[in-house]
Nucleic acid binder design. Structure first.
Length: 360
DNA sequence: AAGATTTGCAACCGCCTTTCG
DNA sequence: CCGAAAGGCGGTTGCAAATCT
């Protein structure tokens, strides 16, 4: 029964490949094609396991492999796809012509993951991290109503859902109500000058925070948005040949045409354990203004440059590179990429937003 | 200059699914 | 239909190069 044994593991070489071995493998595959990996090493005169040959070929020797630094577009695509697919490196690689799953996995672990962490974004959930709160800027954020907030500031807004922080905020805000001069605009502006991350203060009278004692009863109701292009529908997802979506991805998952992905109310620990995706309109527990907040606007200036749906629907066989000119060429600095990555997660906050709606 | 530490990545390991006898 | 190997995939490791002290 069953097949013949793959190969005798005794006496097979391991470790780095030599140029001679590479040459043998390349020559054999060019002459005969990959064929049966089990018999290939013997036929090619290699003292290697077939599995090792396959890996060497698919990850390194294949002629269509693009090497060199990842372009902005590729990096953006990886982040977008990872927010949907998770660690499905092969599925992500299928959308990046010339890149292997191993290369993408390595790049994620060594570059993107670290950058997201530095920017206060959980690389697993793509949500802001709740353990990186800065109360001072939280308060200055809450006392103002900026037209735009970035992910870091959204994170601080979410901190209002932390009962302990809420209590503290409530105390300070009640002081403010009793003593408006205490936190006057001038004082805030001074604070703003000293803290480049603080909000601009031109709308400070529009974003009234009325911290309430009932806020301590706030359930772990939070939201997050994930980067997503304008439209992904079921048909496109199916067409994308990504049947290997995470098993926890609900069947009604979708992105709105503003590119929003809604994370429903959840236990706080869930926020860091796994991503949640649901259809924005179907979340009965979500206040209307919370949904407003969730309208994500990719802040790359021109979302025509990146259409998530177009990537998701690009057939695997498509050879259209995302950035064909980027091969071997990418002179941008880490700082530029970090800045880009940070701005990538910006949100538009409706001016009519009333924070009371957050207080569940 | 030299040792220590960090970083990047090729390759391996082990598990799961698919294929085949 | 069953069971074992092949194939595929994600996680992890080991080592060389780069950077820091």
């Amino acid at each position: 029964m069953g097949r013949a044994p793959c190969c005798d593991k005794n006496g097979l070489k391991k470790g780095p490949w030599t140029p001679e071995e590479d040459l043998k493998l390349i020559n054999y595959i060019q002459a005969h094609g990959p064929g049966n990996w089990r018999t290939l090493p013997k036929n090619a005169g290699l003292q290697r396991c077939g599995k090792s040959c396959r890996l060497r070929w698919t990850n390194y020797l294949r002629p269509d492999i693009k090497r060199g630094r990842f372009s902005f577009e590729e990096e953006e695509t990886i982040i977008q796809l990872h927010s949907i697919l998770g660690n499905k490196w092969s599925a992500i690689a299928a959308r990046l012509p010339g890149r292997t799953d191993n290369e993408i996995k390595n790049y994620w672990n060594t570059h993107i993951r670290k950058r997201l962490l530095r920017n206060g974004i959980d690389p697993v959930t793509h949500a802001p991290r709740l353990d990186l709160l800065d109360l001072s800027s939280l308060l200055s954020s809450s006392l103002c109503n900026p037209p735009l907030i970035n992910m870091a500031n959204l994170l601080k807004t979410q901190a209002l859902l932390n009962p302990e922080l809420l209590r503290l905020a409530s105390t300070i805000l009640s002081l403010k109500n009793e003593n408006p001069d205490l936190l006057s605009q001038n004082n805030l502006q001074e604070n703003h000058i000293s803290d480049p991350n603080a909000f601009p203060l031109s709308h400070s009278n529009q974003f009234q925070v009325q911290a309430q004692s009932q806020a301590q009863q706030v359930p772990a109701c939070t939201t997050s948005t994930l980067p997503c292009g304008p439209l992904v529908d079921q048909a496109q997802l199916g067409q994308a040949n990504v049947g290997d979506f995470p098993s926890n991805l609900p069947s009604n998952f979708s992105c709105s045409n503003t590119g929003q992905i809604i994370v429903p109310p959840m236990e706080s620990q869930d926020l860091v354990s796994q991503p949640h995706y649901i259809q924005g309109n179907s979340s009965p527990a979500m206040p209307a203004s919370l949904e407003k907040l969730c309208h994500f606007q990719p802040n790359n200036g021109d979302d025509q440059n990146f259409r998530f749906d177009s990537i998701m629907s690009t057939p695997l066989s498509s050879s259209t590179p995302l950035n064909s000119s980027s091969t071997f060429v990418n002179s941008s600095s880490e700082e530029e990429r970090e800045s880009y990555c940070s701005s990538f997660f910006k949100f538009e906050l409706p001016e009519s937003l009333d924070i009371n709606d957050f207080m569940c």
